[in-house]
Amino acid sequence: MPRHHKNLSRLFVEVDLVVGSELKLDKPQTNYLLNVMRKKQGDELILFNGRDGAFLAQIADAHRKGATIALIELAVEQTPASDLWYMFAPLKSARLDYMVQKATEMGVGHLLPVITQHTQLVGKLKHDKMVANAIEAAEQCEILNVPTVHQQISLADLLDQWDQVHPNRKLVFADEGAPAGGAANSLMEIKDQPVALLVGPEGGFSDAERELLLAKPFCVPISLGPRILRADTAAVAALTLIQSNIGDLR
């Protein structure tokens, strides 16, 4: 992206983007653009939708009921979507928000909440909020692909359906019982295969869940070291290991 574009605010939209066209924002996005981002008519910004690339745009009309945006030029070509899945036991609100944002920043393409025996879920999991957090992270970090946020599934159902839903994909899971060290070697052995990462809840996987995971031929246990990590910290640590050894940070 040209250097002068990097200082522009970024806004994710759902509609198709075509140079020379105009689009009218809905009321919530108009409010965000004019009152939160404090933009006005004539200001430039970057629009993206996760499909067509990033576009230089200008606010043609700043009416509070629905701002109109004119698309000027394609600023950056669309990048390929990530095939990395991040599967996780949901956390309490603020830490879940953080985890979704960091997973997006780390290049995850799919987010899947997994309910385990020790999952501490207070109330109903807010799917829309996870989507909003992923979008916010993409807007702030110049990411063109917003992860797909899937509906929650139990660990038992995930493993039962694995071969049908995720054929040939390896499931790397953070195993507190694995010996420290050796994670890089384990990852290099599957470097040419699609991968998903699974991080359990604060209390870890139950003994029965761990035995079930270890019994599956598609599961790859890795250690995150000798320290006890919070689940949101473990997410960043594990994703860093994957991306630096077999992902896009190599």
Rank of each mutant, 00 (worst) to 15 (best):
M1S: 03
M1G: 02
P2M: 00
R3M: 09
R3A: 15
K6F: 02
N7G: 01
R10S: 12
V13R: 10
E14K: 09
L17M: 09
V18D: 10
V18E: 14
G20K: 04
S21N: 14
L23M: 13
L25E: 04
K27Q: 15
K27E: 15
T30H: 10
N31L: 10
M37L: 15
K39Q: 14
I46F: 01
F48Y: 07
F48S: 04
G50P: 02
G53N: 08
A60Q: 11
A62K: 11
R64A: 13
I69S: 08
I69V: 14
I72C: 10
A75Y: 05
E77A: 15
L84C: 03
M87V: 04
P90G: 13
S93P: 00
L96K: 00
Y98R: 06
V108G: 01
P113F: 10
T116E: 06
Q117Y: 12
T119R: 04
Q120D: 12
L121E: 08
V122Y: 07
G123Y: 11
K129E: 05
A134N: 11
A134Y: 07
I135N: 11
E136N: 12
A137T: 01
Q140Y: 07
Q140N: 11
C141P: 03
E142W: 00
E142I: 02
I143Y: 03
N145S: 08
V146S: 02
P147D: 13
T148G: 00
V149D: 01
V149I: 15
Q152W: 00
I153A: 14
L155P: 02
D157H: 13
L158Y: 07
L159G: 08
W162T: 06
D163S: 12
P167Y: 11
R169N: 06
K170A: 10
V172T: 07
V172D: 02
V172G: 02
P179M: 08
A180K: 08
A180G: 13
G181H: 06
G182P: 06
A184V: 15
I190M: 04
I190N: 01
K191I: 14
K191M: 14
Q193E: 15
A196V: 03
L198Q: 08
L198G: 04
V199H: 02
E202Y: 07
E202P: 00
S206G: 08
S206F: 03
S206W: 12
D207H: 14
E209D: 11
R210T: 15
A215Y: 00
F218E: 07
I222W: 04
S223E: 10
G225Q: 07
G225F: 08
R227H: 14
R227K: 13
R230I: 08
D232F: 01
A235W: 01
L239C: 09
L239D: 03
L239I: 08
I242Q: 01
S244L: 13
S244Q: 13
I246L: 12
L249K: 08
R250P: 13
